[in-house]
């Protein structure tokens, strides 16, 4: 009887969840939402992701960089959100994400064009990343000559860049004698 009295005093606490959406609190860590338009394919999120839910793979045959998130593996830690330079991936408040039968439904893929190195012709970065860095360089308030000098290095892959730096250095040294 005591319980009944108690129950009368308290209102009903059960939530009408599947019918009425549940309001999550401020700061809830839900599904990381991916915005393809903003992504550069830089791969910072793939490096940061502790459970390898985000992967960035090079598809040399098609000349694409394939970004993929698998919510099956995501632990909603937000590290991808933390490192992303453009907020292309950020935690949302979405918690409705169950799927039946096919777990591929829980993946999001984004394909981005790759860019070839001007010297050796191998793929080394995405077009978007190159454009982004180039635009940033231009807007960083340098004069034209400095921008051109810096942008020159952008067009080569890290290996060629290193090689060139060493060659330049050796040339300088031999000139000096």
């Amino acid at each position: 009887m005591k319980i009944l009295e108690f129950a009368k005093k308290e209102k009903m606490v059960t939530r009408d969840f599947p019918v009425v959406p549940y309001e999550v609190t401020e700061g809830f860590r839900g599904k990381p939402e991916y915005s393809y338009e903003k992504c550069l394919g830089c791969g910072a999120c793939a490096v940061a992701c502790p459970s390898n839910a985000v992967t960035v793979k090079k598809d040399e045959e098609r000349g694409l960089s394939v970004w993929k998130i698998d919510y099956n593996r995501c632990i909603f830690c937000g590290r991808c959100d933390e490192v992303c330079p453009t907020e292309a991936i950020s935690l949302s408040k979405q918690y409705v994400m169950c799927v039946l039968f096919d777990k591929e439904d829980l993946t999001v893929t984004g394909e981005m064009k790759l860019r070839k190195c001007d010297s050796c012709g191998r793929y080394y970065s995405t077009e978007r990343l190159y454009n982004y860095v180039y635009n940033k360089l231009i807007s960083a308030g340098w004069d034209r000559a400095t921008i051109d000098e810096k942008a020159k290095h952008l067009k080569f892959c890290p290996d060629c860049r290193r090689e060139q730096a060493i060659n330049n250095y050796v040339n300088q040294m031999t000139k000096r004698g």
Binding site: P18, Y36, E37, K38, L40, L64, Y71, T86, A88, V96, M97, C98, V99, L100, D102, E104, D105, L106, T107, V108, T109, G110, E111, M112, K113, E127, R128, N131, Y132, N135, K136, I138, S139, A140, G141
Partner: peptide, 29 residues
């Protein structure tokens, strides 16, 4: 209820980037 999520593939890359080059003090730094 129905399933909300579907497999999504974005593959229409146009090389555009989310940065328009404008800056408050004319210097993105």
């Amino acid at each position: 209820i129905d399933q909300k999520l579907k497999k999504t593939v974005h593959d229409n890359d146009d090389g555009k980037v989310p940065f328009d080059g404008t800056s408050i003090l004319n210097n993105s730094l």
